[in-house]
């Protein structure tokens, strides 16, 4: 059994700690992964799957990014980042050896220990696979403690499939069901074409004993929840990772307020029945 670190709290939540970029990998045309190591003398970085950090490009700005690495490897802090704004585009240009500020870890975690004994269905869309990857690492490292493991992933096109080599590796395991679909493809693609919700019926899980974890854009999560409900999975067995405009990351500034909760402090991972009413409020 591999023990999981408790949900970690940043010791000095408002002070960025310098980390050095050890490796940068371009995953997709607009998405890259950085491996960070603490500066010498710093403690290893413990986190729970689903938590996030505030990453600081000095002189440019700070952004919240989920941790996408292995929670069992506290020496390497891994983030997968889409370059869509000024800060993340600047980060995309950072080279090995450059220093990035890190505040964290923050927020709630996927309930990977609470759902031991259950079938587990993980549904990701687009870059939403990155925040789920630490949960996948943990479950695979402790595979005997779970029932059926189902990983379902949807992307726009075959070129947009994140962590493709790892999806193929997980797919080759006899104890894991992996299915991937894309919205559009040309004749050379031999996988599924269709929405990710269509894969749910093929997972072969027991809806009365299944824990589902979903990460992707909210529209994708809404349709996925409907599809899981149609299969008999109830909302208290579904967890989602929410995304809002997180700034302070500790529930002070209120930028990420979501009804009566702060996504940075009370989330980003929520049990769906606890936010169901707010989730369906269009103005939120």
């Amino acid at each position: 059994m591999t023990p999981l670190p408790a949900i970690a709290d940043a010791a000095e939540p408002m002070v960025p700690i310098p980390f050095r970029i050890e490796r940068t990998v371009k995953n997709l045309s607009d998405t890259f992964t950085v491996d960070l190591r603490p500066e010498e003398g710093r403690k290893p970085f413990h986190f729970a799957p689903g938590q996030f950090n505030m990453l600081y490009q000095f002189g440019v700005g700070e952004v919240p990014i989920s941790i996408s690495g292995d929670p069992q490897d506290p020496e390497t802090l891994v983030h997968t980042i889409r370059a869509v704004g000024a800060v993340t585009q600047a980060m995309a240009g950072m080279k090995r050896g450059a220093v990035m500020g890190v505040r964290g870890p923050f927020g709630s975690a996927w309930p990977v220990e609470a759902v031991e004994g259950s079938d587990v269905v993980l549904v990701a869309g687009g870059v939403g696979l990155a925040p789920l990857r630490p949960a996948i690492y943990h479950i695979l490292a402790n595979r005997a403690r779970y029932g059926r493991l189902v990983i379902l992933y949807g992307a726009r096109t075959p070129r947009d499939i994140l962590f493709r080599a790892e999806l193929e590796k997980w797919s080759s395991r006899l104890d894991t069901f992996v299915d991937v679909t894309v919205d559009r493809a040309s004749g050379g693609w031999h996988g599924n074409v269709g929405v990710v919700t269509k894969l749910i019926g093929r997972g072969g899980f027991d809806p009365d004993n299944t824990a589902a974890m979903i990460c992707g854009p909210e529209t994708m999560m809404r349709f996925t929840i409907q599809a899981l409900n149609d299969r008999g999975v109830s909302n208290e067995r579904i967890h989602v990772s929410m995304e809002r405009n997180m700034k302070c990351a500790v529930g002070f500034c209120g930028h990420c307020q979501f009804g009566g909760q702060f996504v940075c402090r009370d989330g980003p991972v929520f049990r769906f029945d606890r936010i169901e009413e707010m989730f369906l409020v269009r103005e939120l």
């Binding site: 869509v84 869309g125 687009g126 939403g128 949807g154 992307a155 726009r156 947009d160 919205d183 559009r184 269709g194 929405v195 990710v196 919700t197 269509k198 992707g216 854009p217 529209t219 994708m220 349709f223």
Partner: peptide, 16 residues
């Protein structure tokens, strides 16, 4: 319904 969901770009972000 599935075809319409494919049209709306389910995995994109609304601001894009």
């Amino acid at each position: 319904a599935a075809a319409r969901r494919q049209l709306i770009d389910l995995y994109g972000h609304p601001e894009e």
